[in-house]
Simulated assay, not measured.
Amino acid sequence: MPPVKKIVMWLVVVFLLYAILTSPDSAANIFGSAWDVVAGGVSNIGRFFDSLLRG
């Protein structure tokens, strides 16, 4: 059985490169949106623990 994880990783990398090369503006918008979601999640986790420790 081939190493499925490695194959999937290469497919994701190739797709990301294709997306960036064919439409860089859209790729930048998607990356920015994903970054906002991650940053918001980290901020909310921080608020949760801050509230938990004060409570």
Score class of each variant (00 low, 15 high):
17 L>W: 11
51 S>D: 15
51 S>R: 13
3 P>Q: 03
43 S>H: 12
34 A>P: 02
34 A>Q: 13
15 F>W: 07
31 F>E: 11
48 F>K: 11
40 G>F: 00
9 M>G: 04
6 K>L: 11
18 Y>G: 08
30 I>T: 02
22 T>P: 01
54 R>T: 01
48 F>W: 08
51 S>Q: 11
41 G>H: 05
42 V>K: 05
54 R>F: 08
25 D>R: 15
22 T>L: 08
1 M>I: 11
35 W>K: 15
25 D>I: 07
24 P>H: 01
46 G>R: 09
37 V>M: 11
12 V>L: 05
31 F>C: 13
21 L>K: 03
20 I>V: 02
46 G>T: 00
1 M>K: 12
52 L>E: 14
22 T>M: 14
10 W>G: 02
35 W>N: 14
22 T>A: 11
30 I>Y: 03
26 S>P: 05
32 G>P: 04
3 P>Y: 00
49 F>D: 06
44 N>D: 15
52 L>H: 14
7 I>Y: 07
15 F>A: 14
49 F>E: 02
4 V>Y: 13
9 M>N: 10
3 P>M: 07
37 V>Y: 10
17 L>T: 08
9 M>V: 02
13 V>L: 09
25 D>H: 08
11 L>W: 06
5 K>E: 12
29 N>W: 03
26 S>K: 13
25 D>M: 10
31 F>W: 06
48 F>E: 06
19 A>D: 05
5 K>Y: 04
12 V>R: 06
53 L>S: 11
27 A>E: 00
3 P>F: 13
13 V>Q: 04
24 P>I: 04
23 S>P: 06
6 K>T: 00
23 S>M: 06
49 F>G: 00
38 V>M: 12
35 W>S: 15
34 A>C: 15
38 V>S: 12
45 I>E: 10
7 I>W: 07
17 L>Q: 15
52 L>V: 13
16 L>K: 14
1 M>P: 01
22 T>S: 07
53 L>E: 12
3 P>L: 13
41 G>L: 01
10 W>Q: 03
42 V>F: 07
21 L>N: 11
35 W>F: 15
4 V>N: 06
41 G>C: 02
